[in-house]
Design a protein around this nucleic acid. Sequence first.
DNA 1: ATGGCTTCATAGTGAAGA
Length: 255
Amino acid sequence: MRIATWNVNSLNVRLPHVLDWLAAHQPDVLCLQETKLEDAQFPLDALRQAGYQAAFSGQKAYNGVAILSKVAATEITYGLRGFPDEQKRLIAATISNIRTVCVYVPNGQSVGSGKYLYKLSWLAALHEWLKEELDHHPKLALLGDFNIAPEDRDVYDPKAWAGNVLVSEQERAAFRTLEQLGFCDSFRLFEQPEKSYSWWDYRMMAFRRNMGLRIDHILLSNTLVPACTGSTIDRAPRKLERPSDHAPVVAELTS
DNA sequence: ATGGCTTCATAGTGAAGA
């Protein structure tokens, strides 16, 4: 079984890239973030023709998450119970016996800002929500754009970024707190090339210079970890015309 | 470089992303 996550930065603009990528890689599950469309605009027909079903939760202009899958998803839930939020940032579904959670963690803008505080409280609410979710679904995969680079090796220039949003100690502590619930970062289960990133700024020719951050992750619950046989970042779509600024992250599971 | 691109909402520029 192949599961993947990709922040597409507008599904309207990126639909051709997504369809090409689905055809080439045939993932069983693809989680999308920043779809930036209302549910009425979701391109269900094109995805169905590509062989995928979809569960989605979107809004105009910002945010928006979706889970594409080859087989039907059940028990679809939206958002964080007990954390009312207009912003569409979480959708969960059970697919082939695996609880699949797709998240778009808030960006945080800058350390100490109101959006930063929102990010930290969103992460705290996610932690509480996951605790309960794990009780019901021990086989759980948490995929998405976390907007956190967990360690300095996930940052192209740790000194320049020190203390910045996406790498600050409070954000990294929140990430570790999630891991302590009983999750592993699938990417780090395996030997990886140095300077592996999943996001590059559109500006400054950042991709060509590999000035990136690894902020998109697939976390697997401990009971799922033994099933994981590989995890990679696919940089190829970042090289296309009009790319998303994020690359897809993939994990392979024995079914 | 509180910038640089890109997208969206808009019909000029401005917000937001990371």
